[in-house]
Design a protein around this nucleic acid. Sequence first.
DNA 1: CGAGTCCTTGACCATAATCAAGATATGTGG
DNA 2: CCACATATCTTGATTATGGTCAAGGACTCG
Lengths: 229, 229
Amino acid sequence: MFRSFSRTELDFVTRFKSGEMKVEGGATVLMSGTRSPHLFTVLSGWGYREKTLEDGRRSILNFVLPGDLVGLQSALFCEMNHSVEALTDMTLCVFQRSDIEALFRREPGLAFTVVWHAARAERILDEHLLSVGRRSAAERIAYLMVFLLERARGLDLVEPGGVIATPITQGHVADALGLSLVHTNKTVKRLAARQLVSWKPGRLTIRDEDGLRVLAAYDRGRTEALPLI
Amino acid sequence: MFRSFSRTELDFVTRFKSGEMKVEGGATVLMSGTRSPHLFTVLSGWGYREKTLEDGRRSILNFVLPGDLVGLQSALFCEMNHSVEALTDMTLCVFQRSDIEALFRREPGLAFTVVWHAARAERILDEHLLSVGRRSAAERIAYLMVFLLERARGLDLVEPGGVIATPITQGHVADALGLSLVHTNKTVKRLAARQLVSWKPGRLTIRDEDGLRVLAAYDRGRTEALPLI
DNA sequence: CGAGTCCTTGACCATAATCAAGATATGTGG
DNA sequence: CCACATATCTTGATTATGGTCAAGGACTCG
């Protein structure tokens, strides 16, 4: 899942790391419009990145899982312009914004890892945007199911039979895909009737991965490991 | 527009740069599914990043303007998973993918610039995704008009009276916002009737920036310069 | 057992897609 | 200079996907 580290990198990370933080499910990790002196790596738990319009309409930009880097924007720009919310209890590895400079100067390999994360986030957003912009409701949901399956698989979170224990609700799916809750529900039911997925609160089962891929016209994204620099 | 460079940085960039490339309007700069040994900085011209489904449905992910970095994904992953198309003739500064490693090892300041670009791209995609997911057609177009105005302003491309000479057509706007061409046109006309914008092929005029911002509920994005590390 | 959170369903409505022409440049070869 | 071709923009009629409204049901947890 991760590439191997050199001795000095490990030392540096240990010093760079300024602590661990635990947040409860439902809590806000980073709030849009504020400035945070920290950035985080997710050690455990599920969350999501989100942006909300003044009148409450909300988009979930991406889901956050262990291994993800969160808060890079607040480290580079004045303010966060999205929020990060915890879905479950989460454990975060805390880094100081002010240490980023030293990381770039002294550990180019780790700096490279940071860009790698940023580029991966962009790639995910690209596909997501294609989905919301041009796929139908059923295609969007199929796409998201396969996406979540791939992410969960990379973290060994998929139980036999394609079962993913996840805190994601249909409300989150709706906000992630730009659909209404009602229409999301009806579409999920239709996919269930076609034996593609099944949904229970807290328990998502992918019954026919290939069928979902075909429906979504979702290219098998080659899941590359972090390249060694 | 750019931060100042140190002498050694300038030397390095000069060596890192492996040439200039010119492409004609309408040409493909980078193609989805291929691997490129180069990445580019845009010196002049307009282009866009794009993803297309098998049946031809297309999303424009972002517009590419001078100063932008393109092809970072092909430098970090095996393949591009989006295309970059030239709208006008473009001049690109060419870098070798294989030199990225040296850049990170020897010029942390420039490495930092690369992350900054990646993070900015992500921020733009975030707002774009909110737009396509949750804004109405009129709001989306208002948002895009303000977005383009801000980008053009940063590059001194706005003529007096809010006129932007741009190769973007209503077809591109439709694909960028997840709308049909017909509906895009009708909505643009309605915004024109409200004195917010006016549209002529090759010539976009922003008549009421504040009105558009209010309609789009678009936060004034603080346009920060590249931070010095 | 009651409160809260999700999920589910049906009826009705609206935004935006599709279809089908047609109008307006702009440029090209004869 | 004109006929023609191509790009883009425009408009109206019709359709459909998905939104909104309004309930109700199921499950969990204290």
